[in-house]
């Protein structure tokens, strides 16, 4: 299921990457920014899908780690930390540490408890961000006046123009996706799939299922944190909304829309999500109800998601032809 479409998609990925590199030359600035947001949410959703699609764990609290990444970055930038590299590194590390502590509590029981506890602890992080005004600015969030430039030997690359933010985001998203790609193809990735397939059999061939799940949770949390840093740079602010369950719902919806069984499914789901948002927000501000109303039939009738169903349909046609 998950392995399908991997090796063949390498070329497709490279072509797509080339297109994305040319993106800002073709697209108007408004759409350049939307595509930037799609990158960020695509990475966020793909990190969520490491848990959901690959190991069968449904987390409703990933926004917590996304927000931790965003807030850590915002705090470091505000205190005048000069190095963006170091800011990203520290933020991802902090998000991963939070994932380690919270994950340790969440993986102790079955999938239902996991869903319930991730939601609960995710909202705990939201509550902290919302109420600890001295540190986080409370419900107003933390606006940033400036973001330090990207510094490479001999170059200083300001993150003021949206096109620069686009490439900056593309680079880090690609790095995050590359990490995910390596992980799912590694022996550990095989363990994850085995957890989803049959955790009992896996335990009885000597695997510590909780530890495997915890490791996946930490990786997913760290990458969600990375997406959070990018979002913070993109928006020039961090707000408690980033940690609310309505925000955790985003990667869930994107993954379901795109399909959890396909590696890039969640990213396609993110693209579908934003195109829908452009359409829908023209008519109504209550955008969650629209998403909920879309999600319900997708869950009932197309459990493999839109892209997932399409991939399977194409596969079936190919098989029946040969």
């Amino acid at each position: 299921m998950s392995a399908r479409g991997f090796s063949g998609s390498v070329i497709a990925t490279l072509v797509l990457l080339a297109l994305l590199l040319l993106g800002p030359c073709i697209l108007p600035i408004y759409w350049t920014m939307i595509v930037t947001e799609i990158f960020i949410m695509g990475l966020f959703s793909m990190s969520f899908n490491l848990l959901f699609g690959f190991s069968g764990l449904l987390s409703f609290g990933q926004a917590g780690f996304f927000g931790i990444g965003a807030y850590t970055a915002a705090l470091l930038i505000q205190t005048g930390f000069p190095s963006l590299w170091l800011i990203i590194f520290c933020s991802v590390l902090v998000a991963a540490l939070f994932a380690l502590a919270i994950g340790y509590l969440c993986v102790r029981r079955d999938e239902i408890f996991f869903a319930m506890l991730t939601l609960g602890f995710g909202m705990m992080l939201f509550t902290i961000a919302h109420n600890w005004r001295e540190l986080t600015g409370g419900s107003d969030g933390m606006p940033l006046c400036s973001v330090p430039p990207v510094r490479l030997p001999g170059i200083e690359w300001s993150l003021f123009p949206p096109v620069h933010v686009y490439y900056f985001t593309l680079f880090w998203t690609a790095a995050g996706v590359f990490i995910l790609w390596r992980v799912v193809r590694s022996p550990f990735g095989l363990m994850l799939t085995a957890v989803r397939e049959n955790k009992q059999r896996l335990a009885f061939v000597g695997a510590d299922v909780s530890r495997i799940r915890l490791a996946a949770f930490v990786i997913a949390g760290g990458l969600a944190g990375l997406a959070g840093v990018l979002f913070c740079v993109f928006n020039r602010m961090a707000t408690p909304d980033f940690m609310h369950w309505a925000f955790s719902a985003r990667p869930v919806l994107m993954t379901i829309l795109g399909g959890s069984g396909v590696f890039f499914g969640p990213a396609w789901g993110a693209a579908i999500f934003f195109c829908l948002e452009q359409l829908v927000t023209a008519f109504t501000e209550n955008w969650m109800i629209v998403l909920g109303l879309i999600l319900i039939p997708v869950v009932i009738f197309f459990p493999q998601g839109i892209v997932g169903t399409l991939v399977q349909w194409l596969g079936d046609r190919k098989e029946s032809r040969s």
Partner: peptide, 27 residues
């Protein structure tokens, strides 16, 4: 419609209901 399916789909469905009902109240 989802009783026979993987537990994830039941959780997803009630979560979708949560989003719909909460926003419906706001509307």
């Amino acid at each position: 419609r989802v009783y026979g399916r993987d537990v994830s789909y039941q959780l997803l469905l009630t979560f979708a209901l949560l989003l719909v009902l909460d926003d419906a109240v706001r509307i």
